[in-house]
Amino acid sequence: MLKTIILLTDTVQQQQPLANLLREHNRDLAFCSALRASDLSAIDPDVLSEARLVSFAADVAVSEKFLLQLGYGAYKFYAAPTQYPGLPTAHDESEDDPRCYSVIAQSMTIWPDFKKVVGLETVTIPDGTVPAERERLVFSRLAHLFWQMSHMIAGEATDLPAIIGSGESACPTLAMMN
């Protein structure tokens, strides 16, 4: 039975709103907060067999040993420019600023062939948008994706359904992205 959600976030301020949202779908959940890999390693190993890790906008490497101990899997919510899939967002100001981003919910596994996309949306940035506003637009779409999936994240399923599996060669359709 899923008892604990481990929230790995970029900032402490993100923890409580995410926990509150998930608690709306499952009042019995306990939460562990983490900002760094060292926070993850401090979690009691007995908790992990009945836990799910959710990484939200965090750029933290999670160890294979930790992932293998989770009874309900691990999922990462992140944004990536569609021009450079798989690469982190550039933080410098350049003429080549991306205009289109994907916000993605993806399973985290030690076996790359078994990773799957469980949620996907796109956001197009209007011309002339300043970097701070671009970041806000992308982050708000990421939060919206988390909100849409919160009932599944807080649920009992040990494996969330894929919308794009790693073995699939088909490109995502427009319906999948929105």
Rank of each mutant, 00 (worst) to 15 (best):
L67I: 15
Q106H: 05
I110K: 10
I110Q: 15
F139K: 02
D39L: 04
T173W: 09
R36S: 14
A58N: 03
T158P: 04
H144E: 01
Q15K: 08
L142T: 00
L174Q: 11
V62Q: 03
W147A: 00
N26T: 01
R99E: 09
A79G: 09
L120G: 02
G73I: 15
T158D: 07
T89L: 09
S140R: 03
V103Q: 05
G167S: 15
H151Y: 04
G71D: 06
L160P: 14
L87V: 05
Q13K: 11
E93H: 08
F66W: 14
G155R: 10
M108C: 15
A42E: 13
A143K: 06
P17T: 12
E64M: 04
I43E: 00
W111E: 13
D39K: 04
L160K: 11
G73A: 10
M176Y: 03
C100G: 06
D10H: 13
N20S: 11
E64P: 08
A80Y: 02
P172R: 11
M108Y: 15
D44S: 02
L67Y: 08
V60G: 09
I153F: 12
F139N: 01
Q16C: 03
T124W: 04
Q148P: 00
V123P: 04
L2P: 13
S140G: 01
L70T: 11
L22S: 02
I43K: 01
P85V: 07
Y75F: 15
S63C: 03
E133K: 15
